[in-house]
Computed example of a mutant assay.
Amino acid sequence: MRIVLATRNAHKVGELQAVLEPLLPGVEVLTVDAFEGVPEVAETEVTFAGNALLKAHAVARATGVPAVADDSGIAVDVLGGSPGVFSARWAGRHGDDVANLELLLAQIADVPAEHRGGAFVCAAAIALPDGTSAVRLGELRGTVTTAPTGGGGFGYDPVFVPVGADRTLAEHTAQEKNAISHRGAAFRALAPVVVDALAGRPIHD
Score class of each variant (00 low, 15 high):
D77C: 04
D110T: 13
V121I: 15
I126P: 03
Q17K: 15
A170T: 05
P192R: 07
A18L: 14
R136L: 09
I3A: 02
E43W: 02
G138N: 03
G26R: 03
G26V: 11
A34L: 07
S87N: 02
A170M: 02
L5A: 00
T168H: 04
S72R: 01
V195S: 13
L24V: 10
A134V: 08
T63G: 06
P148R: 03
T44S: 11
P162Y: 11
F35Q: 08
V111Y: 14
R116F: 14
R2C: 07
D157W: 00
V85E: 05
R61G: 13
R93Q: 15
V98T: 14
L101D: 00
E102P: 00
V121P: 00
A18N: 13
P129E: 13
E102R: 07
V46M: 08
S82F: 15
V46Q: 11
H182W: 05
F86G: 03
G95I: 08
D130P: 07
A62S: 10
I180A: 02
P129Y: 12
D70S: 01
H94D: 11
K177Q: 05
A124L: 03
D97Q: 08
G73S: 09
A147Q: 10
G81C: 06
R2I: 10
P158N: 04
L169W: 03
V98W: 12
V78W: 05
N9E: 04
G81D: 07
A18S: 14
T132A: 15
L53T: 06
E171D: 07
D205A: 14
P25W: 08
A185E: 14
E139W: 09
D96T: 07
T143W: 13
L198M: 13
A125Y: 06
E40S: 02
T44P: 01
I126R: 01
H204M: 10
N9C: 03
G84M: 03
D97L: 01
P22I: 15
I3P: 00
I74G: 00
Y156H: 05
S87I: 02
E36T: 15
R136V: 09
G151K: 06
G117M: 06
V144F: 00
R188F: 09
A75F: 11
I203F: 07
T7L: 05
H94W: 15
G118S: 09
H182G: 00
R136D: 08
A49S: 10
L20E: 07
S82K: 14
V29M: 07
E139T: 12
I108W: 08
A42S: 12
V29Q: 03
N51I: 10
P158Q: 02
A125L: 02
Q175H: 14
F120A: 01
V159Q: 00
A88D: 08
A165D: 15
I126D: 07
A179H: 09
R183F: 12
T149C: 02
G164Y: 08
F35W: 11
A49H: 04
V59R: 01
M1V: 10
G80N: 12
E40Y: 02
E36D: 15
A67K: 03
A88H: 04
P112D: 11
I74M: 08
